[in-house]
Structure formats: C-alpha cells, structure tokens
Amino acid sequence: METQQQLDNFQARIDAGEKIEPKDWMPDRYRQQIIRMGSQHAHSEIVGMLPEGNWIGRAPSLKRKLVLLAKVQDEAGHGLYLYSAIETLGVSRADLIDQYLYGSAKYSSIFNYPTLSYADVCVIGWLVDGAAIVNQTKLAQSSYGPYSRANIRICREESFHKKQGYEMVAKLASGTPAQRKMVQDAVNRFWWPTLMMFGPSDSDSPNSAELIKWKVKLNTNDELRQHFIDRTVMEAEAVNITLPDPDLKFNQETGHWDYGDIPWDEFWDVVQGNGVMNRERMKARREAHENGAWVRKAAQAYARKKKLSREQAS
C-alpha cells in the first residue's frame, strides 16, 4: 500500500529534477506508465523497420542501399535499448513482445501507412524521424533514468537519419520531373499522419496530465506538434516542397504557424486497426516471431547443454 508520505517524497524528488532509478521506490502507477509508454516506443521501433525495409531491395544506388540498411538496423538497435530500459522495471522482453503481438499493446500508427515509392523512405527520414526527434529530445529528459538515457542515445542516431532524409528530399525536389512528383506525392501522404504522431490534442489525451506531473513527459502533445510545424515549414520552403495544408499561416501575435484541422477520424480509425497496412504489419511481425521460435529454442537448448558440460567438467 502506497502511503501519502511515500507519494509526497516521490513527487518532491521529481520536482527537484532527480532521476528515478530502477531500485528506487516508485508508485505502482508510475511504473505502469513507464512500461506502457516505453514498450510502446520499443514496439514502434521494431514495426518501424518494415515500411522502410520495404525499399532496401529496390534502393536506387549502392550508396542509398547502404544508407537505408544502416538506418533500419539502427531502428532495431533502438528497440533493443528501449526493451532493456523497460526490463529494469521487472518485466521481460518476451512478455512485452507477447503483449503487442497477441495482446493490446500499441505501436505508433505512422507505421501502418504503406511506402509506395522510394521517396517515401526519404520523407519518412525527414518528417517521421524529425517528429520522433522532437518527442525523444524531450523524453531524453524524462524522470526515469534508464528510459531517459536510452532516449539520449536514440536521439543522436535519429538526428543523423533526419539529416539523411532531408538531404535526399532536397535532392529529389531539385531532380527530374519524375523525382519531384514522387517526393511531393510522398509529402502529401505523410504530412497529416506525421502530425498525428504527437498524439491526440491535449483535451483528448487521457494520460497526459499524470505523465507531465511525474515528468515522464515534459510537454503536451500540442506544444510538441507546434514546435515541429514551426521548424518544418521553413525546411519545406527551403527545398520548394509544398506542405498540403492551405491553412498554414504565420501568426504574428503568437509567433507560431497556424495550421488546419487534423483529420482525427482517420487517426482513431488507424489506432483501432483499420489502416491500409495494420493487418499486414502485425502479420509480418507475428510470422517473424513464430518462424523464429525454433531458432530461439535451439539457442536455449544449446546454452543449457554447454552449461551442463562445463559444470560436469569442473
């Protein structure tokens, strides 16, 4: 049973900017929130390998193939750091994976959109990784130590991905008519889903207040979304890309860009499993997991045998 004194002490540590470490006392609800958020983040990295992985085989130059492979490999690495960070709270990676493959755990809906052209992976690098950095830079300051440190590492790699994506977007945008068409089409399809990555508006985000109180999150979804839009509008202009929102207007009073209505119906639809690629993504991940079961079993059996023979020898 958590006492008020424990909760007050915990809040005082948070307010003083201290990091919470695995063996420290923490409210059960805090533990649950970190597990929920962190594992959702980890699952997203793993599912996120699929849309970009779709273009590794078709990348248009050896250099671009290497860049893309390295990027997708980084996402697997991020998944690994995050699972390890969350495992410090006493849950196993195997259980977390079961919860998203067969249970109700979620991953970011952005990965339920298909990558229809090579320009899509460039735009994902620019917009999706760009949005992820805005989120993760803040999460790198979050109160739970292991999660915060995992995000610091992730951010370094994500900024590199974003630069590569933006560089390629700029190249396509100043390329042949076919390349320009390809990249504008990709931006048109990914713009709104990217804005949705920050989550529902603050008024519709049930977990936000609690997460902010505990400094798991430091900003509201809307604040982060605005920050991303302000930055991206200028980047788009610099490379002659049109963002598909006729209502984008600079607001002199607020100093921010005003934007049009986000299609939240689509967001909730995709969250509930009804996007173009939702079923495909889950199917691909389940198949990988199930087809790999015999490999994992063999590795365990072999390790047991080796341990036994070492024990018998000593």
């Binding site: 390998m49 492979l69 390295a70 490999q73 087809n291 994992r296």
Partner: peptide, 25 residues
C-alpha cells in the same frame, strides 16, 4: 538483407543487417 525486420530474434535482425551491410559495402 531480406531478413531485415523478419529475424528470429532482435539480436539477429541486427547481426544479419550488419552482415548484409558489410557484403554490399
């Protein structure tokens, strides 16, 4: 590289992607 995202365990996703990167490099 076809294994990327489809490996039997996360560590092998990393290892096989790494091997593919080396080979193509």
């Amino acid at each position: 590289s076809e294994w990327c995202g489809h490996g039997p365990v996360l560590e092998e996703d990393l290892a096989l992607a790494n091997i593919a990167l080396d080979l193509i490099g």
